[in-house]
Amino acid sequence: MDKIRHKLFQQVSGSSPVSVANGSSAHPDTGESDADLLDAYSRAVVRVVETVGPAVVSVVVGKNPRDRRGEQIGAGSGVIVTPDGYIMTNNHVVQGAGRIEVRTADGTALPARLAGADPATDLAVLRADAGDLPSAAFGDSGALSVGQLAIAIGNPLGFDSTVSTGVLSALGRALRSRDGRLIENVIQHTAPLNPGNSGGPLVDSRGRVIGINTAIIPMAQSICFSIPANTAAWVLPQLVADGRVRRGYLGIAGQSRPLERSLVLALGLTGGHAVEVVSVSRESPAGRAGLRPGDLIIAINETDVGCVDDLHRFLATWPIAEPATLTLIRGRQRIRLPIIPIEAVACPAVG
């Protein structure tokens, strides 16, 4: 019977186990036992927690700014990103806060204020009244690989300094922010999150912050999302300097619309969709440029436009007040219009 079992094992696995002194199996290609591999995994997680854990804070949000014992209206997590007290968290954690307090891993309570917020990426920066704090460094979220280790640290459901682990499930996801904009390159992972984890860091095996945990899918198991570190690193200095992220504004309301096949062929278009202009604000850049309801925008500065999100992507990176060119279809004619985006006072739902 033992011979039969051994033969079946070889047929299924394609290799035979190597016996080690403690009775466990070793992998023929490395000589490492399962216990060795698990121990290496544990050491990596412990090392990361020891490195990044002290930089993770609990964020407590109160209603009344003058009453230190006032009613708590929310809680979440955050990560200290500079030793002089700048803390990154989610916008939805601190939105509407009258009073903000952060509690460090050693239990120290520090008053904090909102330095800036960006609802379009669900990110916010707090400033704690302290110095020489432990801080964490951002990694390059553009260099991540599906399957690599992911470690989430936060304060779910009031349980401080909770650690969970998983792997990166997918990269390049898109997630809607609460103001309707599309957040690009969102990280999907399996490190379990719960209410209170929002704003805490997602960390790689080297202790670098690769994302800011932001959302889960209710009733699903281990489908969790993080804003990528590269997005956070882009937003951070703008929030510190100006309290907001500057984005371009055109002054239109629009919707995606499929183009007739005959029109695509007649004009030699590369895409099958355009943004139909539904309305135009008269005193906006679009109004001054001469856009009209019914115009079909197919490109901006030679970048194809098939949906409103394409306009948002362009305006998020294009310099304010720098001239651009819209390519549109009016009737059955292709028209090019110069336009100068201005700074959006608030993040508009369209553009």
Rank of each mutant, 00 (worst) to 15 (best):
I183A: 00
R178N: 10
I183D: 00
G139Y: 09
V102I: 13
L149M: 14
G139W: 14
G147K: 02
S145L: 12
L133Y: 04
R181C: 00
A124G: 08
V102Q: 11
I153K: 15
V102P: 12
S169M: 01
A150E: 10
D160K: 03
P192Q: 02
V186Q: 06
G166P: 12
L133F: 01
V146M: 04
I187Q: 05
A124D: 15
A117P: 03
P156T: 07
H189C: 04
L126E: 09
G154R: 15
D106F: 13
V167N: 03
D118G: 04
T121K: 00
V167Q: 05
G131H: 15
P156S: 11
V163L: 05
L133D: 15
G142W: 05
V186S: 02
S145C: 06
D122K: 01
L182R: 15
T108Y: 12
R103V: 15
P134V: 09
D140R: 11
A136N: 14
L175M: 05
L157Q: 07
I153N: 12
S145V: 10
T108M: 06
F138Q: 05
A112Q: 06
Q188L: 04
A152C: 12
G154N: 15
Q188D: 04
A170C: 01
S161H: 07
L144A: 02
S141F: 14
D160W: 08
G107C: 11
A112F: 11
L126R: 04
V125H: 08
R103H: 13
A128K: 10
R113E: 15
A174Y: 10
A115K: 14
V146W: 01
D122R: 00
D106M: 02
A112V: 08
G142S: 09
A120P: 09
E101P: 14
L110S: 02
D122I: 03
D106S: 11
V167I: 12
L126M: 05
D132G: 08
A115C: 08
A170N: 01
L175C: 00
A130G: 03
L171A: 08
F159L: 15
D129W: 10
E184Q: 12
F138D: 14
A128V: 08
P134L: 04
A105Q: 13
L144N: 03
D118Y: 12
A109F: 10
A137I: 09
P111C: 11
P192A: 00
Q148Y: 10
I187N: 07
L149H: 05
D118E: 09
G147T: 08
S164Y: 02
V125Y: 07
A170G: 06
A120T: 15
G172F: 04
G172W: 03
L149S: 08
R103L: 11
P192N: 06
L133P: 13
